[in-house]
Design a binder for these strands. Structure first.
Length: 410
RNA sequence: GUGGUUGUAGCUCAACUGGUUAGAGCGUCGGUUUGUGGAGCCGAAGGCUGCGGGUUCAAGUCCCGUCAGCCACCCCA
């Protein structure tokens, strides 16, 4: 008991591992139904990739990244999110040419040095999509709908979809200026807000300490330029027409600098304070910022552990289907080889089956006990008398009934 | 990074105001006669009480530190 998993990490096994696998399976299915292709990227990247994309004054970059130097002095970072890597790969391999759909998804572990708490870990998993090259509000709407569908597929009801528009490079600075002017006039801002005022005034909208002091706060909606306003309306219309409920939340901002226009979060009250299960938005300038063509894009990611927390409360783990479990037992030790060959053949054959055994055990009793404890559906017993006639005993563990069957039938 | 709270067996928890060899349930293992499982009965193993220091005749219990879990802030998925 000397070693423990490092702070904020955890081992996953048993029912939880099955649940995660099933969640990933369902998410992949939905991604593919919308025409997204899977892309795998490295767990670590040039650290500068993240500082440039996420923003060098964001919390993620300033204090949450695992940065290290390798033996040749390269400055690397464990990825804190997936978008930057995917965009890098997109540019590096000219995926705009070889994968013209521009639809990609990824799945993997992310790392952030934070104080662990419910729904927040130092190593966690995200799955997400990036839809590159499509400036249409339809891409925004489709992305949001996919996110909602996945949470729904995990059995989570009552998801609240919050959306907002952060405007573009033309109108956002004006809004920002209006905010700074407004907040500068508010007295006794809390310490955090003082910092936010300089770094990211948008964040003040979200302050829980000072919120009551803010009245008639400037709204982004009132500062959107014509194009952004039309765009945001269209996103809403498309969501409505697709039957996706949402809330326009003018206090919704995001912690990564690359977002433009539409941003969104999907929240659930089934979990604790870390209630954002999925989040994303449009990032029309990022590809160019990282050295690619001018490419509009939109994407989102969900945190697998968070989604699992909510899904578990919704009964997701209770509905998992297991393959039929077969246990191969021997009543006579001399039949071990025959039983072994039989078990191998069984597992190579019929699909959706889980074969266990044979096992070197003293008694048939102990084998049956083991079969029982491992949740076996059927135990196939190799016994000399029957085996000599080409038969085995098939025992249904649930009904406690047993019958003979020809070995050749399997 | 800040605050609160908790660390005793694989799990869930006991141990009065500090006081003998730290207990129970569940689980595990073995047995209950050798070719038939979930119950019952009998028995066994399993703990440097997170770690380190201090106070005391005596520390699981009090104090300090540290590490870790949980919860919240912050931030985000």
């Amino acid at each position: 008991m000397n070693f423990k998993a490092p702070r904020g990490t955890h081992d996953i096994f048993g029912i939880n591992a099955k649940g995660m696998a099933e969640l990933e399976r369902r998410a992949r299915e939905i991604f593919k139904k919308h025409g997204f292709e899977e892309v795998g990227t490295p767990v670590f990247e040039d650290a500068a990739l993240f500082t440039r994309s996420i923003g060098d004054t964001t919390d993620i970059v300033e204090k949450e990244m695992y940065v290290f130097e390798d033996r040749k002095g390269r400055k690397l970072a464990l990825r804190p999110e997936g978008t930057a890597s995917l965009v890098r790969a997109y540019i590096e391999h000219r995926l705009d040419i070889s994968e013209p759909s521009g639809k990609f998804f990824y799945c993997g572990e992310m790392f952030r040095y934070e104080r662990p708490q419910a729904g927040r870990y130092r190593q966690f998993h995200q799955m997400g999509v990036e839809y590159l090259g499509n400036p249409s509000p339809a891409a925004d709407a489709e992305t949001i709908i996919i996110a909602a569908d996945i949470l729904s597929a995990a059995g989570i009801k009552d998801i609240k979809v919050h959306i907002n528009s952060l405007g573009c490079e033309k109108c956002r600075p004006l809004f920002r200026k209006a905010l700074v002017e407004y907040f500068s006039s508010v007295k006794d801002l809390c310490g955090d807000c003082g910092k936010r005022l300089e770094k990211n005034p948008l964040r003040l909208l979200d302050c829980k300490v000072d919120a009551h002091k803010f009245t008639n706060v400037p709204k982004m909606q009132d500062h959107l330029c014509e194009e952004c306003a039309v765009n945001f309306d269209e996103v809403q219309n498309l969501l409505k027409s697709a039957g996706c409920d949402f809330i326009v939340d003018d206090r919704l901002v995001r912690g990564l600098d690359y977002y433009t226009r539409t941003v969104f979060e999907l929240k659930s009250d089934l979990v604790g304070s870390q209630d954002t299960l999925a989040g994303g938005g449009r990032y029309d300038n990022l590809v160019k910022e990282l050295g690619g063509q001018n490419t509009p894009a939109v994407g989102f990611a969900f945190g697998s552990e968070r989604v699992m927390m909510a899904a578990e409360k919704a009964g997701f783990l209770n509905e998992l289907k297991e393959p039929e479990k077969i246990f191969v037992a021997i009543a006579d030790q001399e039949l071990f080889d025959k039983a072994f060959a039989f078990a191998v053949k069984l597992s190579r054959g019929k699909k959706d089956i889980s074969v266990f055994g044979p096992v070197n055990a003293k008694s048939l009793t102990s084998q049956l006990k083991l079969a029982d404890k491992t949740g076996t559906d059927k135990t196939i017993v190799f016994a000399k008398t029957e085996f000599d006639n080409g038969k085995v005993l098939v025992k249904d563990m649930k009904t406690k009934t047993q019958e003979e069957a020809d070995i050749s039938d399997f």
